[in-house]
Design a protein around this nucleic acid. Structure first.
Length: 920
DNA sequence: ATTTTGACGTA
DNA sequence: CGTACGTCAAAATA
């Protein structure tokens, strides 16, 4: 029976016109051919990705299609092959089964979920214009071997992607096998050296080795008692399998006996595992050249498969969208004019109503700053550089008025820092309509930095002129020779900022974040400027006393610890502690870390409970004391000359949308322990104010969860006004609310909060110190009563997997590509992030809206009270004399009204002379 | 000299 | 095998 081309052959793809974007290699020797064993890789993909997580809404499983396509996109992106081809196995007999009926006989039938996916993969390949063929009676590997030979003879480089080790025999200097180690994303490059290293024989003799050792997956038995080591030894000693067979009688020992008994099998193995290199197929290298994808078909197929994330990745990879390669990036065109006295007003007048870019060279920290130069750029690449050291009074007045004009329409990168810098020169920044830093953050909230130079390359395909991409507050800008080099630097940055406005606005719109930027992030930024500038008053004498006290406690604990073991060690060194605890004192080993065994507080407390060794007691006391001392020391160091501590709120670091606080971090001041709580007494009301007011949301994340899930029981819990955990506990345990014991309440509380973090039954049992069974039962009971919560939690992850992102009540997105990773660790991590991001992020949205409401009400009513701090669900204000009542009401009202949820937002307020007194 | 790790504070 | 952060000192690495 002559081999015939199978129906899956996609001749249309072969006939497609050459892609103008992909230039065919001038000679075959420049060609790079990617060959894929379709079934082998599809099968790997099927087992790498959990089938229950990958299905279209009508139930068609797609995990193999997804994994295969994902692998293909990655390979094409990373390897940049000029030619691609996929070979398929066909059902029915092959020359191997004819020769040996048991060939591959141990293979169980493919799962039903798998079978249907192969035609879908073929549809994807058709849309991608990738030729793919199955030939009856011939295995895919034989087709690949034949094409490998043909391509290699023409001087091409070949990559063979297959999970079948028989392909190792194809490896040469020009042929590399990509063999999946785990899943389909972790491919090992099998080069001649790699094969030799792993098996001890060159690639050409791999089939010799396999014939001796056997191949379980093909149902080819090897010689009993002969493993890869012995086989390699023989093959090398007798110059190949023929030599081994010929000298079989000369091989001594048990293994030799075994070999002689199985010679026939070995010889047949070798016949079967040798790949055919002369399959009769008309396919030539030239037929496999990459051609343009059929965009329309890709959209259709990917729509049907509901692959959103993959589609984006695919289109991102295509040459057309691939701009940003080094040779494409030119310098940004900038025309700089140094300010001539009197020229500012006409320059601005000529650009009345236009969006202008601003960049300021200066510094900022601790709620203040300085500026020495700035530049304003228009949309034509013209930039006006202004040296603030030499600017005349008239121009300064014009500049000040323009900056302070709310209608000025200014785009700037990092408006918060810029505001502080300008404030150092008495200038106010008001008319910011876009902050490119914030915009980049909203579009890519997981990124670590949003450097202006990087944005320029990414969005404009332009490079900032050399020496300019450093932040404008660098000392380089000082212009030591007295010229306005600070202004020159600012000039280029201002142009970049101005030009970034358009693509970033478009990107914000695409991602549904326009309103979030305009209504939340920019207004809250203005509030943060005021908060950072205000700072919070510190009671320095009190902190100093506290420092001494903690110091003494550190000494005491250290002395106690040294006495307990009869020598001194560095108590802050986990390494030395491990020596003491596990080697010297012989205590039971704790949980493992990368470098040994943990000495964290939990583990130490556990060890103390078991051994009651006084060293542990002192060590724990030392840990606490040294930490408190450290905290107080840090706070004292950060007190500004005005006697206040000015933290910096970071608006673009937390991927969920929260703020963070640095230098110092005022969002992690102790509160749980009584000793730690004393630190809050050092944060006090400032001169001229009446007291500090704290207002916090109670259980805001649980309320958000109730709202998002729409779970009737949970909503009712909040509406009833009953203690939440007591209410939930009564439902879960089936008792009256008043019969919920404190132990029951504690369990419920831990579980309720844990759910929002993706807590597992295992984690819950660990945390509560209960059995895994009890924890599992507790969770089952919980979900039994609050099924809406479970439906929400699973739904949110599934939706995120489909869409590629999660979103909050104000449409703040977090992108989680790892939801489709075939690495379980990464995937499950992303799943927990997907559970938490909408909850934590929505809470962050609500608090930001509240901050905007509070600060605008304070301003509208002409009150002197002011916001000082935000600690995620808590606001701290400084209240001016006589304003306490009005501010309390205003804060309550604004916070409660910050979001319209299906449950009330409960706010509790406290007042006092210190943060401690104001707490509750 | 700089980066990574372990530990630990907050929501 | 529970999310999001920042800070410090020690350890690891250059």
């Amino acid at each position: 029976m002559p081999p015939r081309l199978a129906p899956v052959t996609d001749h249309d793809a072969l006939d497609a016109p050459a892609d103008p974007e992909i230039t065919a290699p001038a000679a075959a020797s420049d060609a790079k051919l990617l060959l894929i064993d379709g079934h082998s890789m599809a099968f790997r993909a099927f087992f790498a990705l959990p089938v229950e997580n990958f299905a279209t809404t009508d139930g068609q499983p797609t995990n193999a299609v997804y994994g295969f396509t994902s692998m293909l996109i990655n390979l094409v992106r990373d390897e940049q092959p000029t030619h691609v081809f996929v070979a398929w196995d066909m059902s029915g007999p092959t020359f191997r089964t004819e020769q040996y009926a048991e060939y591959k006989g141990t293979r169980s039938a493919a799962p039903d979920e798998f079978k249907g996916q192969v035609p879908l993969i073929q549809e994807v390949l058709a849309a991608l214009s990738i030729p793919h063929v199955g030939i009856s009676g011939i295995e895919a590997d034989d087709v690949l071997a034949t094409l490998t030979d043909r391509a290699e003879r023409q001087g091409a480089e070949v990559l063979v992607c297959s999970g079948d080790r028989d392909t190792f025999q194809l490896v040469t200097d020009r042929v590399t096998v990509l063999y999946p180690r785990k899943g389909v994303s972790d491919l090992v490059r099998m080069t001649p050296a790699a094969v030799e290293e792993k098996y001890g024989v060159p690639p050409g003799r791999y089939p010799d080795l396999a014939a001796l050792v056997g191949e379980t997956s093909d149902n080819l038995p090897g010689v009993p008692g002969v493993g890869p080591k012995t086989a390699a030894k023989w093959i090398n000693a007798y110059d190949g399998l023929d030599g081994v067979v010929g000298s079989a009688t000369a091989i001594t020992g048990k293994a030799g006996e075994s070999l002689r008994a199985n010679l026939a099998q070995v010889i047949m193995n070798r016949q079967l595992n040798g790949l055919m290199r002369d399959v009769d197929t008309p396919l030539q290298l030239a037929d496999l050249v990459r051609v343009p994808i059929d965009r329309e078909a890709v959209h259709q197929v990917f729509d049907a498969l509901q692959f959103r994330v993959l589609r984006d990745r695919l289109f991102d990879m295509l040459p057309k969208d691939e701009a940003g390669t080094a040779e494409d990036v030119e310098d940004l065109a900038v025309q700089v004019t140094d300010l001539v006295p009197g020229a500012l007003a006409p320059w601005l007048a000529a650009r009345e109503g236009q969006e202008l870019g601003l960049d300021v060279a200066g510094t900022s920290a601790h709620g203040t700053g300085d500026a020495w130069a700035l530049a304003i750029a228009d949309g034509e690449g013209e930039s006006l550089a202004i040296d603030l050291a030499t600017i005349g009074d008239a121009d300064l007045d014009v500049l000040g008025a323009w900056l302070a004009d709310p209608a000025a329409a200014i785009t700037v990168h990092d408006a918060k820092s810029t505001s502080h810098s300008l404030a150092g020169r008495g200038l106010v920044l008001a008319g910011v309509t876009l902050d490119t830093l914030l915009a980049a953050y909203l579009c890519h909230p997981d990124q670590r930095t949003y450097d202006l130079g990087d944005l320029t390359v990414r969005y404009l395909k332009r490079e900032l002129p050399s020496g300019v991409d450093a932040a404008s507050d660098g000392m380089l800008d000082l212009g030591l020779d007295g010229d306005s080099s600070g202004g020159r630097t600012a000039a280029a940055r201002a142009v970049a900022v101005r030009e970034l406005g358009e693509p970033l606005r478009a990107d914000l719109a695409t991602r549904g974040a326009t309103a979030l930027m305009g209504d939340v992030e920019l207004p809250v930024l203005a509030t943060l400027v005021d908060m950072e500038r205000a700072g919070i008053a510190a009671d320095v004498p009190y902190f100093t006393t506290l420092l001494n006290e903690f110091d003494a406690a550190v000494e005491r604990a250290a002395a106690g610890a040294y006495e307990a073991i009869g020598r001194s060690v560095n108590l802050g060194s986990p390494k030395q502690l491990q020596e003491v605890l596990f080697d010297e004192l012989g205590m039971p080993k704790t949980r493992k870390t990368k470098t040994g065994y943990t000495t964290d507080a939990d583990a130490l407390a556990d060890l103390f409970a078991r051994t009651e060794h006084p060293f542990l007691e002192n060590l724990l006391a030392h840990r606490e004391a040294i930490r408190l001392r450290q905290t107080v020391e840090g706070l004292l160091k950060s007190v500004s000359p005005d006697g206040r501590i000015h933290t910096t709120f970071q608006q673009t670091v937390a991927a969920t949308g929260r703020l963070s606080s640095v230098d110092p971090n005022l969002q992690n001041i102790p509160i749980r322990t009584t000793e730690g709580y004393r630190i809050r007494e050092g944060f006090v009301v400032g001169e001229g104010y009446e007291g500090l007011l704290t207002a916090d949301y109670s259980q805001i994340e649980m309320r958000i969860m109730a709202h998002l899930s729409g779970d009737a029981g949970l909503i009712e819990a909040f509406r009833s006004g009953e203690d939440l955990h007591r209410y939930v506990g009564s439902r879960v345990f089936g008792v009256a609310p008043e019969d919920v014991t404190s132990a029951m309440r504690a369990k419920i509380k831990a579980m309720s909060y844990g759910l929002a973090y993706g807590l597992s039954a295992f984690g819950l049992s660990k945390q509560l110190g209960i059995g895994a069974g009890e924890a599992r039962g507790l969770m089952d009971d919980y979900f039994e009563r609050f099924g809406g919560v479970r439906d929400y939690l699973t739904g949110v992850v599934d939706d995120a997997r489909q869409e590629g992102w999660t979103s909050t009540i104000l449409d703040r997105r977090r992108y989680l590509p790892d939801l489709t990773s075939d690495n379980r660790q990464r995937r499950e991590m992303a799943e927990r992030m997907a559970l938490n991001a909408p909850i934590q992020g929505s809470a962050a949205d609500v608090v930001k809206v509240a901050m905007i409401g509070v600060s605008s009400q304070l301003r509208l009513r002409g009150l002197a009270s002011r916001l000082l701090l935000q600690v995620h669900d808590e606001l701290v204000l400084e209240v001016a004399p006589g304003e306490r009542e009005e501010v309390t009401e205003l804060v309550r009202a604004q916070m409660a009204a910050a979001a319209d949820l299906s449950v009330p937002l409960d706010v509790s307020v406290g007042f006092g002379r210190s943060w401690r007194d104001a707490g509750h």
